[in-house]
Design a protein around this nucleic acid. Structure first.
Lengths: 103, 103
DNA sequence: CTTTCATTTCAACGAATCTTGAAATAAAAT
DNA sequence: ATTTTATTTCAAGATTCGTTGAAATGAAAG
């Protein structure tokens, strides 16, 4: 992952609604959640939720699949992990000082 | 750290110039770097560098101290670590699936 | 085939972001 | 005191972001 891509991923995480989407999907587990359920859980209108889901989708943090009338969303942990690895190893050069701060 | 604060930190990291600032400061080590050195290293004008340094400073990812004519900047690893902890534990609920993806 | 349900797309708007270059500030050197 | 060096602040302008509500799309049910 390069800087530009990491910046796009960080941007996707730079919004409280989108962080709440992530949290809801993590708690939901591998079955995922429909767009409507997500909208309800984060307290946003359907169109607002859809806007934020698209932002997360575009950078690959979540994936969607149509399930009859609903659209089911799932988190992609590999993408989250790749970003953490970038921050830890590439951006912060694998610094022992950073590792010392990480519990 | 709450969602809103985390979102602000993620926003601070959502720019390639600012990621380069972080990297430069990590490599520089505890002596830090002057604003001018940072501007040169990331290939930005003084005012552009200052803008991004202010963005990182406002969220506590870096700190500054005047050293005669220069202003020395330093990274605060604790703040980076706190954000990673938020992402890992709060946002992703300490998910084993995420940990399994983290080398 | 029409209706209902679930979701996305769109246009419009205000707000925030980033860049640039010039002016202002701070501190040291002459 | 004036000049030089280092940095920040400011105004202007282009771009992107996020919200809202209405319209469009997709898919199932009646």
């Amino acid at each position: 992952m390069n800087e530009d891509e990491a910046a796009l991923l960080f941007h996707a995480l730079s919004n409280p609604d989108r962080l709440n989407v992530i949290r809801a999907l993590v708690i939901a587990g591998p079955t995922g959640l429909s767009a409507g359920d997500i909208a309800r859980q984060i307290g946003a209108s359907p169109s607002r939720a859809s806007f934020h889901l698209a932002a997360l989708s575009e950078v690959g943090l979540i994936h969607s699949e149509r399930q009859s009338r609903s659209v089911l969303y799932n988190i992609d942990f590999r993408r989250v992990a790749a970003l953490m690895t970038f921050l830890m190893d590439d951006c912060c050069n694998g610094s022992p000082d950073l590792k010392a701060c990480c519990p």
